[in-house]
Simulated assay, not measured.
Amino acid sequence: MGAGMRAARHYTLALFDALAAAGYDAPERVPRLPIVNPPLWELGHVAWFGEWFVLREASGSHPGEALGNSLLARGDDWFDSNTVPHRARWTLDLPAPGALKTYCREVQDRMLDRLAREQDLDDALYPYRLALAHEDMHGEASLYTLQTLGAAPPAALAPIGQDLLPAAVTPAQSGDGTDAAAGDIAFDGGVFLLGGDQARGFVFDNERRAAPCRVAPFAIAADLVSNADYLEFMRCGGYQNARYWSEAGRAWLMGQERSAPRYWRRDGDGGGWHELRFGRRSALDPAEPVRHVSLHEAEAYCSWAGRRLPLETEWEYAAAAGRPEFRWGRLWEWSASPFLPYEGFGADRYREYSQPWFGTRQVLRGASFATPARLRSPRFRNFFTPGRDDIFSGFRTCAP
């Protein structure tokens, strides 16, 4: 775990340096957008989170539940996301970048020193695993910010967007897939264990409690919807025909004035398309999965195509079956399931991770090319509001 913590912190600092190189090293230089945080605040928050749960042995995420004081005199006032509203993060009198980098390194050195003395027990390692997962997720969010602001990622990440395959997965308890219609994999359905393994390792609270789940027979696309597929939807008037869109989707569409995915741009002659990736023009590859689409766009495509989005239980069942045809891990995939607790849910020490968002977010499954391997799991539940299209999101479809 120590090696993973070092790698994550190195990555965090490299991402900050990339944003700083683009001119976003101070909050006042960062656009006030609801989908980004000032990078300087992000840098301090990631280190503070590890200090809170590991070094200060916090029993929860509320003020007063940690031991002692932050290494920074005003660390709790600056970097506690529960008490510092998003809009206030642009107006804080934060330390200079050099001082925050020193804080990041000091916190990690102390965490690693403490880790070396811990017993190899899940309870003892829980805060370290939580802090590492938190930093990994913020690393991917920083890449969203780089994409949103049109800034280049760290050189070590180039070329970004390569096709990464997921780590090995565990076979399902029942149900074998068979080829159905072209591009689909049919599953007979059955019972499988939904949720994370409770016996060992790290499990997010929203994956508990693991319980048997019955899935009806279904057929799911082996791959994500491609740029070529989505372009056909657009050519058929997909964005103009209101009947393809839900009421919420139509409201979102009117507010966005959108007629293509977020980062698609027409070529100079008006006859084709390219896309912007981290501020640079990139040829639109027809075979690549369409990316940066919202839930509303995914649902509209399904309505046009006579298909549907998979339930998260169907997605997990298919991914856990281990069929090589079922490719996942390049983009987060929208599901048809709202983000709700599993039966028997109980919040962990980081109480604000899941519970406040139940019923207001939609589940995405899988991983993206920017997700560290240690976070890739067929059971991981990501969740965002339906209108988010700045994330590395795509979708696959199911037979109706």
Rank of each mutant, 00 (worst) to 15 (best):
R208E: 01
G387S: 08
A300C: 09
D77P: 00
D25Y: 06
A318V: 11
V46P: 04
L231V: 07
A221L: 12
F278C: 02
E51M: 04
T170Y: 08
A73S: 14
C302V: 11
Y301S: 00
G346I: 14
T102R: 04
F53S: 04
L115F: 14
R281G: 09
A8D: 13
T170P: 00
E257F: 11
A186N: 06
L311Y: 05
Y144P: 09
R209S: 10
W334T: 03
A20P: 10
R265E: 13
H296D: 12
R308W: 05
A251E: 13
L112E: 15
E333H: 01
N241F: 07
G68V: 03
W304C: 01
P63H: 08
P217E: 10
R266D: 13
T170V: 10
E343M: 11
T83R: 10
A3I: 11
M254D: 14
R89S: 01
R396N: 07
L193D: 11
A367V: 03
L340V: 15
W264G: 09
R208P: 02
A321V: 01
H296A: 03
A156P: 10
T91D: 15
F383N: 02
L364P: 11
R87M: 02
N382P: 10
P34L: 04
L19S: 11
P289S: 06
L121R: 12
N69R: 15
V36P: 02
I391R: 15
R32N: 01
L121H: 12
L100Y: 00
D205I: 09
A168E: 14
D17E: 15
D389M: 05
L100W: 01
H274Q: 12
R235L: 11
F202P: 08
R129V: 05
A66F: 08
L295E: 04
P31K: 03
A96E: 13
A321P: 04
A18H: 06
D122A: 12
A373M: 09
T83C: 12
P63G: 04
L340F: 03
G306N: 02
D76H: 09
N206I: 05
A287K: 11
A320S: 13
D184C: 11
R361H: 15
R327W: 00
N37F: 02
Q108H: 14
A287T: 14
A73F: 06
P378R: 00
D285L: 07
I160K: 02
E28D: 14
V225D: 02
L331Q: 06
V30E: 01
R307L: 13
P171M: 04
V203P: 02
G249E: 03
F339Q: 04
A18R: 05
A181L: 13
W245F: 07
A172Q: 09
V36G: 02
R308I: 08
R262V: 05
H134L: 11
A287F: 07
E232Y: 07
Y126G: 09
G150P: 03
G279Q: 11
E352S: 15
P356H: 08
P356F: 06
A18F: 02
G237L: 09
R262G: 05
H86M: 07
Y126T: 08
S59E: 14
L149Y: 00
S174D: 12
A222S: 14
E28S: 09
T102F: 00
G201C: 05
E299Y: 02
D223G: 14
D113G: 08
R323E: 13
D76C: 03
G195N: 03
A73G: 07
C104G: 04
